[in-house]
C-alpha cells in the first residue's frame, strides 16, 4: 500500500505516459477521460483496493467495475503497472487477437470484473455484486467507476434507487465529473447538475473531491467505507486530458488518440512534470 503522494504522483505520471503510447500505437481510442482519471486509478490500485494480480479469483478481493468502458486505457495501464500483465502487452491495445480489447472484455483478460462499453449499466452490476456480498456475509468493497455522460442513461438511475433501497454501504461509486462528453459540455448536451442534491434526494451519501488530489481521494474512500446504511457517491471533479496542456478541458479529445507529433509533445510535458515531482518542485 502506497500512501506517499510523491510516489503516487510518479506512478500516475507513468500511467499517463504509457496509456498515451498505447493509444498512439492503436491509432484509435479515447484520451481525455483516461488522462483525467489516472490519479484516481493510481490510488485505487496502489493504495485503496484489496487485490492480488497473481490471484485474480481471490474471493476477498475488492471488486472494481468500470462502467464507462471507453476510458479503459487508464484501467489497462494501471493494471499493467500493478502487475497484471506486461507493459509490452499494453501496447497491443485494440489489435486483432489481443487481450487488451478496445472496450474491456471480462473473459479476455483476468482481473476484469465485467465487460463494458455500452454506458449506464455498470452501477446496476456493481449493485448486484454488492447485494450478493451482503447476502453471503462477505466483507469486500465494490467500487463502481462511472462517467458524467452516462448519467443520462435511465439504467443508471434505476440502479441509484436500487442501491439506496438495499442500503448497499459496501458500494462506492466514483464518478468522473469532467463536464465533457462526445458532443460538448454535459450541461449543454443534457444538463446533469445539481449532482450532489440529486443523489442526496435519492438517499445516497455524497462526498465531493478534487480528482487529482491524492490526500482528498484517499480520505474520501476512508470516509466512504465508514458510512453505514447508505451507498456512497464520490463525486470526483476532474480535468479531462489532465497533464497534457493541449488536451485539458477540450471535449474534442474525448475519443481521439494522439498522433506521433502530439504524442511527442504530450510525453515531453509529462516528463517535465515528472522531473518536478522528483525534485519536490511539483505544485500538487
Amino acid at each position: 500500500m502506497i500512501t506517499d503522494r510523491k510516489e503516487l504522483a510518479l506512478i500516475a505520471n507513468t500511467i499517463r505516459q504509457d496509456l498515451l503510447r498505447a493509444l498512439n500505437t492503436a491509432g484509435s481510442g479515447h484520451s481525455g477521460g483516461p488522462l483525467g482519471m489516472a490519479d484516481i486509478f493510481t490510488v485505487l490500485y496502489f493504495q485503496a483496493m484489496k487485490h492480488d494480480p497473481q490471484n485474480t479469483d481471490w474471493d476477498e478481493r475488492d471488486r472494481l467495475v468500470l462502467s464507462n468502458g471507453h476510458i479503459c486505457p487508464v484501467l489497462y495501464a494501471t493494471m499493467a503497472h500493478a502487475g497484471y500483465f506486461s507493459v509490452d502487452e499494453l501496447m497491443t491495445l485494440r489489435q486483432l487477437g489481443s487481450r487488451i480489447q478496445g472496450h474491456p472484455h471480462r473473459s479476455a483478460l483476468p482481473g476484469l470484473e465485467t465487460t463494458s462499453g455500452p454506458l449506464g449499466s455498470g452501477l446496476s452490476q456493481g449493485s448486484g455484486m454488492a447485494w450478493a456480498a451482503k447476502l453471503d456475509g462477505k466483507k469486500h468493497t465494490v467500487f463502481v467507476l462511472t462517467s458524467d455522460g452516462e448519467h443520462q442513461e435511465g439504467n443508471h438511475w434505476e440502479a441509484v434507487m436500487f442501491a439506496a433501497k438495499y442500503k448497499l454501504d459496501n458500494l462506492i461509486q466514483i464518478m468522473d465529473r469532467n463536464f465533457i462528453q462526445i458532443e460538448g459540455n454535459t450541461e449543454e448536451v443534457m444538463p446533469l447538475d445539481p449532482i450532489k442534491e440529486k443523489y442526496e434526494a435519492f438517499n445516497w451519501h455524497v462526498i465531493e473531491v478534487n480528482g487529482h488530489h491524492y490526500e482528498e481521494i484517499i480520505s474520501a474512500i476512508t470516509e466512504a467505507k465508514a458510512v453505514k446504511g447508505k451507498p456512497v457517491l464520490i463525486n470526483a471533479l476532474t480535468t479531462p486530458g489532465k497533464g497534457v496542456s493541449f488536451m485539458e478541458g477540450d471535449y474534442k479529445w474525448h475519443g481521439k488518440p494522439p498522433s506521433a507529433e502530439e504524442l511527442e509533445k504530450a510525453l515531453a510535458e509529462l516528463q517535465q512534470v515528472r522531473t518536478q515531482i522528483e525534485q519536490d518542485q511539483y505544485d500538487y
Binding site: 492503436a26 491509432g27 484509435s28 478496445g102 463494458s116
Partner: peptide, 8 residues
Amino acid sequence: VGPDGATH
C-alpha cells in the same frame, strides 16, 4: 466498426 470491439 473495428477496434472498438465486440460491444460496439
